[in-house]
Simulated assay, not measured.
Amino acid sequence: MKNREKKYLRKTAPTESAKIVETIYGCKWSLTVYQLLADGINRPGEMVRSIEGLTTKVLNQCLRKNTEFGILERISYNEVPPRVEYKVTDFGTKFMKVLDELEKLQHEIENKI
């Protein structure tokens, strides 16, 4: 019998998904926006009115970043006045499940302390 040695390649952290998680958690409003979308509030003006302290400029930056990551989809209607809505993509649904699991892990950590 030959003595075979197993060779393992060095495992590295997922760079893109880690970057997305870091950016979303770094954004003060992203998690709140997800909560609003889950409650059926999907228009930017209504979002700003629903959250004290949130400005239109900051909300637009938050929505743009989430759209770039593919978490949210921007739907623009050809109407006068213009109407824009946001919805969670299939990828966004998967991503939010990851965030939910991280939140559960955080609760477990807090309960051990």
Rank of each mutant, 00 (worst) to 15 (best):
R4I: 03
R4S: 04
K6G: 03
K7G: 03
K7W: 05
K7M: 09
Y8F: 13
Y8W: 12
Y8T: 12
Y8D: 06
Y8G: 06
L9T: 02
K11M: 10
K11N: 01
K11W: 06
T12P: 01
A13H: 06
A13I: 13
A13M: 09
A13K: 09
T15V: 11
T15I: 11
E16W: 08
S17E: 11
A18T: 11
K19S: 12
I20S: 00
I20E: 06
E22I: 05
T23E: 09
I24G: 03
I24W: 01
G26E: 03
G26S: 00
K28I: 03
W29Q: 03
S30N: 01
S30R: 04
L31W: 04
T32R: 07
V33K: 04
V33G: 01
Y34H: 02
Q35V: 02
L36P: 00
L37V: 02
L37H: 01
D39M: 00
G40F: 03
I41S: 00
I41G: 01
N42P: 06
G45D: 05
G45K: 05
G45V: 04
E46F: 05
E46H: 13
E46Y: 05
R49Q: 12
R49K: 13
S50W: 08
E52N: 06
G53T: 02
L54T: 02
L54Q: 04
V58Y: 06
L59T: 05
N60C: 03
Q61F: 09
Q61M: 09
Q61P: 03
Q61S: 11
C62L: 09
L63W: 00
R64P: 03
R64L: 14
K65I: 14
N66F: 06
N66W: 01
T67S: 10
T67G: 05
E68K: 14
E68T: 12
F69Q: 07
G70E: 01
G70Q: 00
I71M: 05
L72C: 12
L72W: 15
E73F: 09
E73T: 07
R74F: 05
I75K: 10
I75G: 14
I75N: 15
S76D: 10
Y77R: 12
E79Y: 08
E79T: 13
E79C: 15
E79I: 13
E79P: 07
P81G: 03
P81D: 07
P82M: 05
P82T: 12
R83E: 12
E85T: 15
E85S: 15
Y86E: 06
K87V: 07
K87A: 12
V88L: 15
V88N: 09
T89K: 12
F91A: 00
F91Q: 05
F91Y: 15
F91T: 03
G92E: 07
G92A: 08
G92H: 08
T93E: 07
K94R: 14
K94C: 10
M96W: 10
M96E: 14
K97N: 09
V98M: 07
L99S: 10
D100T: 09
E101I: 13
E103V: 10
K104A: 12
L105F: 10
Q106W: 08
E108T: 14
I109W: 06
K112F: 10
I113S: 04
I113L: 13
